[in-house]
């Protein structure tokens, strides 16, 4: 199962945990399973249209934008880190 590390802002949606474990063969499948388990995450992670631009996702040490995005394959011992964009004016 992939380990997903969540930023503080998303932890209330998963009962306060910093890490959750979810099955999936790709990053997209992992996110689908995550949202099925915790539906209130859906607006934060986007629906079928892919990830919102204000969310960054790292598979182990790589930004998935530089891999195959949501189609990137996920190993059983993978660690996925979700980071909200830090931005302002």
């Amino acid at each position: 199962m992939a380990r997903i590390k969540l930023p503080t802002v998303l932890r209330p949606h998963v009962g306060g945990s910093a890490v959750v474990e979810v099955e999936g063969r790709t990053v997209g499948e992992v996110f689908t399973a995550l949202v099925e388990r915790y539906p209130s995450l859906e607006p934060q992670l986007g629906g079928d249209g892919g990830l919102p631009v204000f969310v960054n996702v790292f598979l182990d040490d790589e930004d998935i934008r530089y891999l195959d995005g949501l189609d990137t394959p996920v190993d059983d011992d993978a660690e996925i880190t979700i980071l909200p964009a830090v931005a302002g004016g």
Binding site: N56, D63, T81, L83, A85, V86, A87, G88, G89
Partner: peptide, 11 residues
């Protein structure tokens, strides 16, 4: 007038 932190540096 705006900023976005480099996501890789954030990571």
């Amino acid at each position: 007038t705006n900023y976005t932190i480099d996501p890789t540096e954030h990571f």
